[in-house]
Amino acid sequence: MKILVCICPVPDTTTKVAFSDNNTHFNTQGVTFIINPYDEWYSLVRALELKEAGVATAVHLVTVGKADAEPVIRKALALGGDEAIRIDTDSNDTYAVAAQIAEYAKTDGYDLVLCGKESIDYNNGTVGAMVAELLDMNYLGFAAKIDIAGGTATVTREIEGGEETDACSLPLVISCQKGVAEARIPNMRGIMAARTKPLKVVAPAAVDTVSTIVGYELPPAKTGVKMISADNMDELVNLLHTEAKVI
């Protein structure tokens, strides 16, 4: 069984977000890029566990991005995985990203495609379901637990107002969140090995871009906190009712 893990480079979670060129571009100056936590902690680590358990025969990593995405994909390879594929194009259009991954996946027959439930930068959470549609596969979103045996995945996942456990035969696309696996730290051996693992650069497929980001905005700053004495909770409740009008 072959697993394809989708990896998205994102700004570090401590990044103070700023924009340039009249608020039309995300300012990457001084920003450290990391592997999207949902992709790393959950989907990649679970894929590695499945390989270590002898369930998966190969784990490939794929990312859509220009050469500057390579340090992040090397970091992912340091955790594990047999090879990485970088589709050489840049896009913030979620359809275009999904279509590139799907086109690549078609060329190499994967049984399982794993991705994070969303990337922490654009928060779309759309790529997994789009890839599933483009590959005509089933999709299980928001997995908290994944087991695979005899070509069937058993997945416990979040649904509206609760949890559901499903069984579904492969091939399948799953998006992962907390619970699927525990975060790992790459060791020196992994980091050394990652340097020599194959990182294939493939030309992008001809895919239409159907949306573009035309501007950004920062949320309005809070006007200042009103401090209330801990001995006067009636005043707080009163303010929430009369001033904030939320209760």
Partner: peptide, 15 residues
């Protein structure tokens, strides 16, 4: 919403 609530983006849909 983008950057998990740290900012907003304006997306132009062209399809």
């Amino acid at each position: 919403n983008v950057f998990s609530g740290k900012a907003f983006a304006f997306v132009n849909v062209t399809s």
